[in-house]
Amino acid sequence: MTTYVIRRLIHIFIVILLVLTVVFFLTRLTGDPVLFFVPMDTAPADLEEIRERRGFNDPLYVQYGRFMRDALQGDFGDSLRQNEPATNLVFRVIPATLELGAAALLLSIVLGVPLGIFSAIHRGSIADKTSTLVAVLGLSVPAFWMGLLLILLFSVYLGWLPTSGRGSMAHLIMPAVTLAAFSVARYARLARSTMLDVLGQDYVRTGRAKGLSENRVIWVHALKNASIPLITITGLQAGHLLGGAVIVEQVFSRPGIGRLLVQSLLNRDFPVVMAAIVFVAIVYTFMSLLTDLAYAWANPEVRLR
């Protein structure tokens, strides 16, 4: 187990190095960052002087070497626009994104899994078809559009919830629902299919034959066995939620890693882009590791090597 974790940590480190390398070269392809942080009336000679001073005129491999040397020490450089360390900007918004991601994940599990189980138990009923329809809607409606519709309904027409910002539970409801919509649907679909599969197994029939209550059969015996695919999907969903936050944070004007990433990409603020991407990569890879560990915990037959 320990060997496995160490080996996975080494893998994670290599993945992050590769991500840094790819993103470094991709961002450099987008163009000249200097134009974005100087006034438009800056003379060409001054532009050139700034490029020189900031090292943008150096060969790309020199810039890459310098960047990797600093990045491995946790220094991604100062934001080109805000003159403060890029890591500060990222650390400042991480709590907001974690708050949103956790709320959305919780919502997805709490709503999606029971919905799927309910569908499985009442297979073929109107309730099953309705829940399937809701799930398909959740999977197919774009988050951007859904967010705007929720704002129009609950903020503009009903006045129940704030349109944007962060601070209270009320501010969290619509972004979390929007972000969770896709995941709820995925959980519901997966829970339904795995539950249907499990409910057809011999041990379930045996349980029922022994006189166990239906609730005990479903929630204790069947659910534990159905939970393995759900654990797998949870790891993947955490990554999806982080990606979805890019859009949701923008629509609901919530500070967060997604909004920071979009803004810094549009402004070619390379140090912030790199720092934010590394954060996302770390979360994604660690969630993957945690998923594997949880998988082993849920299914003793699985041996981590």
Binding site: L148, S155, T163, V251, S253
Partner: peptide, 18 residues
């Protein structure tokens, strides 16, 4: 001064009286 990057969200906030 409240920061709302998306114009549609900004206008919604305006129409909601925020």
């Amino acid at each position: 001064f409240r920061y709302i990057p998306e114009f549609s969200s900004r206008l919604a906030a305006m129409l909601a009286g925020e």
